[in-house]
Design a protein around this nucleic acid. Sequence first.
DNA 1: GGGAGGGTCG
DNA 2: CGACCCTCCC
Lengths: 279, 279
Amino acid sequence: MNAPTNPQSNVTPNVTPDITVATWNINSVRLRMPIVAHYLKEHAPDVLCLQEIKTEEKFFPFEAFAEAGYPHVALSGQKGYHGVATVSRLPIRESSKLDWQANGEARHVGVELVGRDMFIENVYVPAGGDVPDRAVNPKFGQKLDFLGRMTEWADALDKPTLIVGDFNIAPLESDVWSHKQLLKVVSHTPLEVETLKRFQDAHGWIDLGREFIADPQRYFSWWSYRAKDYTKGDRGRRLDHMWASPELAKQAVSHSVLEEARGWEKPSDHIPLITGFDL
Amino acid sequence: MNAPTNPQSNVTPNVTPDITVATWNINSVRLRMPIVAHYLKEHAPDVLCLQEIKTEEKFFPFEAFAEAGYPHVALSGQKGYHGVATVSRLPIRESSKLDWQANGEARHVGVELVGRDMFIENVYVPAGGDVPDRAVNPKFGQKLDFLGRMTEWADALDKPTLIVGDFNIAPLESDVWSHKQLLKVVSHTPLEVETLKRFQDAHGWIDLGREFIADPQRYFSWWSYRAKDYTKGDRGRRLDHMWASPELAKQAVSHSVLEEARGWEKPSDHIPLITGFDL
DNA sequence: GGGAGGGTCG
DNA sequence: CGACCCTCCC
């Protein structure tokens, strides 16, 4: 990738990339449509990958996205939980819907950008429950197994790919507000971090966020709803990621994170990230 | 009672009564507090009787009422359903909480206006379910039995009393948008109307609403939530009532119904009624 | 349609 | 805390 114009900053460098791709765990797309429309209007990514849409496909707000200029949609939805959608201003072709848990949950959709040599994989990794021990908490085991299947998939991957979404893991110490206090908290345990590293190494994924906002700079993408004021104590974590194949990563020219979105009206607990590419 | 200045109108005649009393089925007092405060500010009844407060007593918004100038409260609440509250600018003394069904439901509270010879009974009659046949719908039987116990109570009554609230019965043909289409609909069946008439005759209650807005004039107090626009077709019913003892009724000088409240922000499906008295 | 409640999830 | 689900009630 090209060097960012200002490595200390998390705002988009003053470049106009060919293509911009954003990711946002939206925590109910129907409830959040007003702020999504606002985001699209203000930031106009070419492609937006949403997680936790929490709706069946038949209730997805296709019309609102079309009106906002995003007529192209690939989605995997289910009732009430999970669900991912990739919406685009540019033509996309759905390339895969993978069920890495083989349990029917809607946690992935892959698209190809038509006429561009780029695949975009939109994923929502399981949260993993409360206790970081698969013997007492099956959900934690499922999370690790999900990453294991993703790793097998990545190992066989041979196309220029961008994988984005809510990985539900903050791998670096600087990805959390307190490394020490979160070592035994699901999302930042050494076992999760190692498991994610194996996934990364399987394809040589480049962590674009940390290319532009280098460790050990503060970089968070999520703040819990359980604090009345999310800014109080700034107890954030970087759970959302944008990772690219090595060759594609070289074409990334900008990356930014929209922290103000956490303070919008009826916000998601996650904020949007965006990366620009010169293809 | 004194003749209304304009019997065709449902607006308050130009009099300043000694005392005004209002009734409103509020369908959750906590959710509706903003419009209740607005109503109190604009119409300033001395006493307001609320039904369907839908809260336990410990969660009743005493403070908001005190700030609005209504520090005196008598209430009977329960979790989730039913519940009545009488709030007042003037001192009141709780005189009774009657359980006419003997099932523990909070459907009545009676107060005495301190220093005035007037009792105000606030009641929420059971809705009665869907099918107007006690053999197949026990709730319909409970509604009739509730009115039966009220009739026994009224028969023994010997104080100047105003009974107000949601009776869940529209007795007259002009109390519903279509007499014919509602004859078999719970709230307007002949059996309910007869049962309510027996209650009325037991004490000689005067239907103050119909003294001021005489039959067959249109007079509704409720419109279902199940129409997107309640004004479309005007499918209303008069389910809420203010009935006075014969001698007290002679002191009623005004009565009006606030239809605009059905169109307020997050409205109740019922609207408030108000009666003025010269004691 | 729209209150309430309770349960589950994160 | 705030999404979702469901049932109950009007």
